[in-house]
Nucleic acid binder design. Sequence first.
DNA 1: GACGTTCATCGAACCGGTTCGACTTTCGAG
DNA 2: CTCGAAAGTCGAACCGGTTCGATGAACGTC
Lengths: 337, 337
Amino acid sequence: MNIGEIAKRAGVSRSTVSYALSGKRPVSAATVRRINDVIAELGYRPNASARALAEGRTRTLGLVIPPASTRLTDVQLSFVASVVEAAAAHDHDVLLSPSGGDHDRSFDRVVTGRRVDGVILMEILLHDPRVERLTSSGLPFVTIGHVVDSAASWWVDVDYAGLISRCVRHLADLGHEHIVLINRSDELVASGYGPAMRATAGFLETAEGFGMTAHDVCCADDPAAGLACFEDIRARWPEVTAAVTINEAALPGVQRALHRAGLAVPGGFSLTGVIADRLAEDFHPPLTAADVPAGQMAQLAVDLLLEQITNPEATPRHALLAPPITLRSSTGSRRRA
Amino acid sequence: MNIGEIAKRAGVSRSTVSYALSGKRPVSAATVRRINDVIAELGYRPNASARALAEGRTRTLGLVIPPASTRLTDVQLSFVASVVEAAAAHDHDVLLSPSGGDHDRSFDRVVTGRRVDGVILMEILLHDPRVERLTSSGLPFVTIGHVVDSAASWWVDVDYAGLISRCVRHLADLGHEHIVLINRSDELVASGYGPAMRATAGFLETAEGFGMTAHDVCCADDPAAGLACFEDIRARWPEVTAAVTINEAALPGVQRALHRAGLAVPGGFSLTGVIADRLAEDFHPPLTAADVPAGQMAQLAVDLLLEQITNPEATPRHALLAPPITLRSSTGSRRRA
DNA sequence: GACGTTCATCGAACCGGTTCGACTTTCGAG
DNA sequence: CTCGAAAGTCGAACCGGTTCGATGAACGTC
C-alpha cells in the first residue's frame, strides 16, 4: 500500500494525494475526503525512508550516549527519556548511538550516513574529538555541557561552578570552616570533564573567599568508592564538618561511612551538592541540594537542536541553567567536633 | 557527494560503484581500487534513507520503552544500553519510542512508517494491546516478558516463578517459617504485569510446599513506599523473619525501615529476591539474590529479532532465563524474634 | 574454429515519496 | 464581455541508492 495505490483507488494522481496530505497546495474538499476514506480503509502510512529521501531530512534526532560499560547515572537516564519525549512532541524520533571505546563505528554511521537531522551529545569533555568530527561534518548538534571554546557552538549546561559556589556559601552561612568537595572519578577529571573542572574551580574559589579551608578529592562513581573516599577524608582531615558533592553514584557509600563513623546528618556532619532531585529526596535525611533539572535540559536541548536544523544560519545559542538550591534537611550549623 | 559523483570521478557507472561496495557482483581489482581512492578522497558515505528505500530494510531496530514518567529501574536502564550495543555489533541502530500514556503517536510512527525492521518491546503486560498492534502490522518483534498465549511469539524472559521459588527454598533451608513477598506496585499487578503475577504464584506455591506461612504485599516503586510497606509488614505480621522481593526501587526504603526497627541483616532479618547484580552488591550488606542478567537478555533479544527479520517464516523461539542465586550476605538462619 | 562460461561493466528500471511547471476551469473585477 | 488570478489537478523529474538484463571481451573446451 503505497501512495500510487491510494491514488489509483481514489481516482487521482499521486501528486494530488501528496498535496492532500501535506496541504501544500489547495485540493478540493471532495477529493480530500475521498482520499482520506481510501487511506482509512487501507490503513496507509507513508514510507519514512522514501519521504526522508525526497525531503532531504529524516525527522530523526541522534542522541549520543556514554557506552554501557560506563554506568549511566540516574540523571543521565532521565535525561535520555526526556529527550525522547521532547522529540516525540515535535514528531521526531530518536536514534541512540553509544560512543567512546570501540563504538565509533556506530557514531560514524549515524553522523555520516545522513541518518539523522541533528545530534545531541551527552557527557562531553572540555576537548572532545566528537565535537570536531561533528563540526567538520556540518551536521547540526547541541552538546550537553560545553567545550572550552564555547561561544561558537550550541549547548545546554548546568552552571556547576555557580551552584557549587552557592552550596559553599550556604555552608559558610551555617558556620562551617573546614569543608571538602567529593568530585567524580580521577579518570574523568584527568580527561578534562567540564563539570568536574568547573565544580572544583567554583568550590576552591568561593571557599577561599569566605576564608574556609577547603580540600577536594576525586571518587569513582560507585558506592564502594564513596565509602572508602569518605573514610579517607575523615582520616586525613578530621576537622572537616561538611561536604559538597557532584558524585551521585557514590552517595550510598558516603551514607554508610557516615553511619559507621557515628556521624548523624546534619547533627554531626552536613552534606550538600548538585544531585538529581529524586536521589536527593530518597536520601536519609533528604539532601539539601541544587537539583539538576534533567527534564528541562532535555527539552531545551531538543528545542535548540530543532531551531538549528530549521535555520542552519542562526547564530549559536546556549543555556546555562542554575536551578535554585532546595533546602531539605542534610545541612545544619556547625558543631564542635 | 552521492554515488553518481563517485562514479563520474572514477570513470565508471553508478552500478559498478554499487557492486564494488557490496561485492554482489565481481568487479576488477583495478576498478575497485580506483573507486576506493575516490571514496576515501571525498569522504563518501552512502545515504541511509536511499539505501533503505531501495533495499526495503532500514537496518534499524525499534526499542519501545516505558514512558519517562514511569521511573526506569536500574535493570531496565542497563537493558537499554545493552540493546544498543548488541545492535551496534550487528551494524544496526536503535530507534527509541516511549509508549503508554499519550505516546501512542510515537509508537505508531515507528511501527507503521516502516522506520524499523523490527521491534523490541519492554515491560509487557499479560494482555498487551501493543502486541496485538504489532502482530497485525506484520512487523517482526520480540518481547521482554511474555504474554499469556506465548507459544506463537518470540520472547525473552526471566523465570520469575522459578527464581522466587528458589529464594523461598533457600529461606526454608535456613529455617524460616514466616515469610513475605514484597511485590511491585498495585497498579502494575492490577494491569496484569507478568513478572509480578508469576512471582506471586511461585512464591505462594513453594512456601505452601514447605509448610511456611506466606504473605504477599504490593509496594510502589520508590523508597518511601518501601519504608511504609515494611513498617506495615512488621505491624501486621511481627512473626515474619524474612522477605523476598522483586522491587528494586523500594529497597533503600526497606533498608531504612529495617534500620529503624533495629533489625540487623541477616542477624535479625533475612532479605533476598530478584535484583540487578549492581544493586545487590551496593546494598548493605550485599544481598543474596538471583541476579537479573540484563546484558544477556538484551543480547538474546537482539539475536532473536535479527533472526526473525532475516527469516520471517521461522518458527517462533523463546528463552526463559533462570540465573543462579548468588549467595552474598543478607540471608541467615532464623533467630527467635 | 565455433561455442558455452565467466568476468566486467553499463544502462535502465525501480523503491515511494515530494515538488515543479503546465494546463484547465472557475470566478470576480473592471 | 474580457482578462487575470486563484483553485484544482496532472505528468514528469528528482532524491540516492540497488538490482536486473544485456552486452562485449577473455577464456577454456571439444
